[in-house]
Design a protein around this nucleic acid. Structure first.
Lengths: 121, 121
DNA sequence: ATTGATAATGAAAATCATTTTCATTTACGC
DNA sequence: GCGTAAATGAAAATGATTTTCATTATCAAT
């Protein structure tokens, strides 16, 4: 019953542990892998069930799948050129943990992103 | 240019300050108000621009619009029931500011959300 | 009141991610 | 080989949201 297709997992890893179903599909196509979009969705769903990946939502509502246990980082995104810088987020981790505990939430994750204009833009 | 339809705002208030566009539309229909779905979307979008309502996402990706005070805050969202708690984010504000400065970014904003399971779920 | 410009409206069509259907193929135990 | 259950994927369906575009309301200036 496990449809956790290893090829899909591998692509997600190579994508930096962060991608939408559509992106995973496009990546595999570009690499010449033969796979259907349906299978990508099913594999990702299965990985979520197995708690190997986390599902979250982008601002536009598209689902993005993130490897669990990924030492996760945050992004500084430039609104001008779209460039991103990975940044350290210790303060955020702590904040999320404290806030969740304070309200009795469990099984918590978080997202945090900073956007602005970089030096060049 | 302000399309912040007061009828839509009123419905959102009466809905407990929390509803999706589709729900607002259905509510207004039920109350015999004549309005188009498109207008509901535009009104809500306008209210978001005017920072009168907040937009966030349900687990299924549907956008929900929520009345908010002017104070910039963050959300603790339950993956189970969709309930949200407004939380204090001083630590995040500081973090965002420091990180942006460190990389020479200007005109910065940020998003930060914590999600998990609340006590009841 | 009439005209004209501008903004608002909403029905219908388009878009796009995601899910479902279903016929076909693959894998595996016998 | 044979049969069965799982996996696959193309195509259709779904559902929220956006776009298009023709119509209507608003309102200031005459």
């Amino acid at each position: 019953m496990s449809r956790s297709n290893p090829r899909v997992l591998s692509v997600l890893e190579r994508a930096g542990g962060f991608a939408s179903a559509q992106e995973v599909y496009r990546l595999m196509q570009r690499e010449g892998e033969s796979i259907g979009l349906t299978t990508v969705y099913r594999a990702l769903q299965s990985l979520v069930n197995d708690k190997i990946v986390d599902i979250l939502r982008r601002d536009d509502g598209e689902a993005i799948y993130r490897l669990c246990g990924d030492a996760h980082h945050h992004h500084l995104v430039c609104k001008g050129c779209g460039g991103t810088v990975e940044i350290e987020g210790g303060a955020v981790e702590k904040w999320a943990k404290v806030m969740a505990e304070e309200h009795g939430f469990r099984d918590v994750g978080h997202t945090a992103e900073i956007f602005g204009l970089c030096l060049k833009c």
